[in-house]
Design a protein around this nucleic acid. Structure first.
Lengths: 336, 336
DNA sequence: ATGAAAGCGCTAACAA
DNA sequence: TTGTTAGCGCTTTCAT
């Protein structure tokens, strides 16, 4: 391994000078700088980042903590983080929290051991108090997909409510009057906001949404199937179905299909997230696009900025607005 | 930040003693050890991993380099790596190579700057010479999904040929006689092996596979659609379709559907990989399971072992055999 | 413009 | 059993 010493020796200068040319420090003679650069190239010298981190107490390494990176949504998130990191010459440590506050905290502590000053965290279940404490201790901590007013400048989040409103309005515009909703049993966070958006849009349009037409289940494919079966079993009539997310929507389509109902001819379905699967299912899913990769890149740049300049307390807001992606799972209401 | 010095001072011992109890080093008095442990807990001391890495010239950090982590296959790969890493108390750096040899190499160099001794690399396009050189320089480098005989003990790969054979045999068993294949235009690596497996199985069964029944396209959804359209346009008749991977298979199903052909009643389709999408499409896709997460965990443990003990040159082989997952896209041949 | 030297937090000889 | 000390490779004053 070639060190700064080797370079200094070969170039016939001191290590301080080498360090200066590496950092483009001003005070170096042109001839000298050129010579050192040449030696660096010849020897293939690369600074040891651990040594750097040790003395400067900071790294060009940041961390991303998500529940499980193999899930497409979090894979996209991680990809966005990596992009933002790479563009700023940062490396990217990843950890799966597996939905446990304990391993989430462990991952974060471990990141701190590594002198990471910037962390992008997707935390669904940790309570605000914990998060606030963490945010206080780590200036470069940015939350993605969560909004905590007290640290609004550290939250990069999506306006779920508006997204759901858009979807509902679109269905309304296509003439639908009989709605059903399938959502998550956990109404904290996203599911609650999305449901609220739906309710608002419907209320504004004076279209009823009976409680019986709202079915809760697990937020995945199976949950979507079950929820629709339950709806059908209860005899709820609907021509428009709003699902909490794409996975539930696709499960719903399957259940509808099995029940002899056609999508979109008999029932129109809208999802939320715009995961890869929504382009792959049949009919292709009309859904609300969640710009997670873009948001993650943005969050990363923010985290880096905050990590490097903890005092630059700009009070911008970091709210993203989703938009509807029209595909093939929505049609005009029957008879329109 | 609390350092080893702080702990030493509070506990009234030298830093060497603290270091010893951290490493469970034998030579420490019981009373002393207990006291130090207590202080460590009280102060919340955590060793600085950069300092450690600097002196010991090794880290508990490893790297995973894949083309793009947002693709479900690579997300699963990364997840497997993270699991293997976590179980060994390692942290996990990730990089997207974006299918470019240049950024792949850059990512690896950067990993070396960080003193990573273990690297898990998924490289499709880099040539063997480059890879061999890398493997020589980095004892803890493990290739996943690639086989290079000269470093067979560093390759964790899948028997694609056998996988494709299983799929073909299964179709044969269900009475199919008229086959078509859609594959990638790039026949290096996986696609070539899979096609070879199909050819062998068919030859053994004395079932012909005319060249016209093999269509090449891009290895994605659109490619699958195009390939099937081309097959149909050429007037090729088939009741069984083998796709290079799940995405092509699903594209194929879409195209078949549009052409008025039912899956599996008219045409049976088999994919390869068993990505999430194969459980989400309709009909659910019968496919060959690629145990990528499991393989990645295995590769990670291997990489860690090799990184820590470069000389332990066990010459095991690391070949995984895929198996078929029966779902709903295959039926008996019409008339059977 | 350049060099000498201190020290980041830690590990590992070597002493005692 | 415990402490002293010399670095690991680098950045950063402080001299010159």
């Amino acid at each position: 391994m070639v060190t700064i010493k080797d370079v200094a020796k070969v170039a016939g200068v001191s290590i301080a000078t080498v360090s200066r040319v590496i950092h483009d420090g001003g005070q170096v003679g042109e001839a000298c700088r050129a010579r050192v650069k040449k030696v660096i190239a010849e020897l293939g010298y690369r600074p040891n980042s651990n040594a750097r981190a040790l003395v400067s107490k900071t790294t060009n390494t940041l961390g991303v903590v998500t529940p499980k990176i193999s899930m497409p949504f979090f894979g996209s998130l991680a990809s966005g983080v990596e992009k933002g990191a790479r563009e700023n010459n940062y490396k990217c440590l990843m950890s799966n929290s597996l939905y446990e506050t304990k391993s989430e905290l462990e991952a974060i502590e471990s990141l701190r051991d590594h002198n990471c000053r910037s962390i992008i965290l997707h935390s669904e279940y940790s309570d605000e108090k914990t998060l606030l404490k963490l945010a206080e201790e780590i200036p470069g901590l940015v939350l993605i997909n969560r909004y905590i007013p007290a640290i609004s400048n550290r939250c990069v989040w999506l306006d779920n409510q508006t997204g759901a409103k858009h979807a509902t309005d679109y269905l309304l515009k296509r003439g639908h009057k009989k709605f059903a909703v399938i959502t998550s049993i956990y109404q904290n966070g996203d599911p609650g906001f999305r449901l609220q958006g739906i309710r608002e849009a419907l209320k504004t349009a004076n279209v009823p949404l009976p409680e019986a037409a709202i079915e809760e289940s697990t937020a995945n494919l199976e949950g979507g199937e079950q929820a629709v079966k339950a709806l059908l079993a209860k005899g709820v009539k609907f021509t428009a179905l709003l699902a909490y997310n794409d996975n539930m929507a696709i499960g719903a389509i399957h259940a509808l299909f099995e029940a002899g109902l056609r999508v979109p001819e008999d029932v129109s379905v809208i999802g939320f997230d715009d995961l890869i699967v929504s382009r792959v299912c049949r009919p292709r899913l009309t859904t609300v696009h969640y710009p997670v990769e873009e948001m993650a890149s943005y969050a990363t740049k923010l985290a880096i900025e905050l990590g490097e300049h903890p005092d630059a307390s700009h009070h911008r807001t970091h709210l993203f607005i989703p938009h509807l992606v029209e595909r093939d799972s929505v049609a005009d209401a029957p008879g329109v």
